[in-house]
């Protein structure tokens, strides 16, 4: 199982990002290998449609679960289409902290979008 977390920097001790599609990095936690890997979020510089593209990056990386601060309607629709479940984390934490919160089942699952998307 792979879990993606939007992050402001490139390691598991970084602060989580307060945006999903335009975060700097995604930290991918591989629960089978117990390892972390950072991927640069190339969708963040898109003029429009960053949400869909960001999800595609996660989908191509084989992610099963995404921990996010917020979600636009396009990103949510795309996550559902990629069979990726999403959970909302509180701000100002680190990547590791929100991951623990997820395993403690303390993060709410997102089934409707929390923000309106950007063009």
């Amino acid at each position: 199982m792979k879990i993606a977390i939007s992050s402001s920097e490139n390691n598991e001790n970084s602060k989580v990002s307060d945006r999903f599609a335009r975060s700097e990095y995604f930290i991918i936690y591989d629960h089978d290998k117990l390892s972390f890997e950072a991927i640069v979020n190339t969708a963040k510089d898109e003029g429009s449609g960053a949400g869909g593209k960001a999800v595609k990056i996660l989908g191509d990386a084989g992610v099963d679960i995404a921990l996010v601060p917020e979600l636009g309607p396009k990103a949510l629709e795309a996550l559902l289409a990629f069979d990726i479940k999403s959970y909302q984390y509180p701000r100002e934490k680190t990547v590791k902290e929100v991951l623990y919160l997820y395993f403690e089942k303390k993060l709410p699952e997102l089934l409707i979008s929390t923000s309106k998307g950007k063009h």
Binding site: R19, S48, S115, K116, G117, K118, H119
Partner: peptide, 9 residues
């Protein structure tokens, strides 16, 4: 589009 970009979020 320019206005939409300016107001979102």
């Amino acid at each position: 589009c320019n206005v939409i970009s300016a107001i979102t979020g």
